[in-house]
C-alpha cells in the first residue's frame, strides 16, 4: 500500500490537468489524507467556481475504495448529498477496481459535475428538475446555492 501511495504522490507532483488545480496530501508525513481543489467544468452550471474535495485513504487501499467528500458540504449537485458532501458515484462503490488511482477518481468527479445522473440522486430537488428537463431552473438553483455559499 505504501509504495502505491508514494507513487501516486510522486505522480501528483507532476500533475497537469485543466480542472484539477491542486491535489495534495494534507501533511506529507501521512499520505492517507488528501485534499483536492477542482474547477467546475466550462459548460456546466459549476463553471467559474472551485470546489474542495477531501479524500481519505483506508489501510486496505487499493483493494477498497478511498472515501471522497466535498469538504465545504454545501454542494448543489444531484449526486452529492447537500448536507454531508457525500458523493454517489459508481466507481466509488460497486464498480471500484484497484487499478483506479486518486487522480482518476478526481477526474471522474469532475466528469460527474458535467454530467449528473438523476437516476441515483442524493439531492432530490435538483434531480427532479433534471428529470423533467427544466434546465433553466436547474442552472438557476445551482448558481443560487453557489453564490450563496460564496458570500
Amino acid at each position: 500500500m505504501e509504495s502505491r501511495i508514494l507513487k501516486e504522490y510522486k505522480d501528483s507532483r507532476s500533475l497537469q490537468s485543466q480542472y484539477i488545480l491542486a491535489l495534495d496530501p494534507i501533511s506529507t508525513d501521512d499520505l492517507t489524507h488528501w485534499e483536492c481543489t477542482i474547477k467546475g467544468p466550462l459548460h456546466s452550471p459549476f463553471a467559474n467556481h472551485t470546489f474542495k474535495l477531501r479524500i481519505d485513504i483506508p489501510q486496505t487501499y487499493p483493494l477498497t475504495t478511498p472515501i471522497c467528500k466535498f469538504e465545504p458540504f454545501a454542494m448543489p449537485h444531484p449526486n452529492v448529498n447537500f448536507e454531508t458532501g457525500e458523493i454517489c458515484l459508481d466507481i466509488l462503490d460497486t464498480n471500484w477496481s484497484p487499478v483506479f488511482n486518486i487522480q482518476y477518481i478526481v477526474e471522474a468527479i469532475v466528469w460527474l459535475l458535467n454530467e449528473p445522473n438523476f437516476k441515483s440522486p442524493l439531492n432530490l430537488d435538483l434531480a427532479n428538475l433534471l428529470r423533467f428537463d427544466d434546465l433553466k431552473a436547474y442552472h438557476d438553483l445551482i448558481s443560487y446555492h453557489l453564490n450563496n455559499s460564496a458570500k
Partner: peptide, 11 residues
C-alpha cells in the same frame, strides 16, 4: 515501456 509494475501495488 517504462512501467511494467503491478497496477495494484506498483511495487
Amino acid at each position: 515501456a517504462d512501467d511494467l509494475s503491478c497496477a495494484v501495488c506498483k511495487a
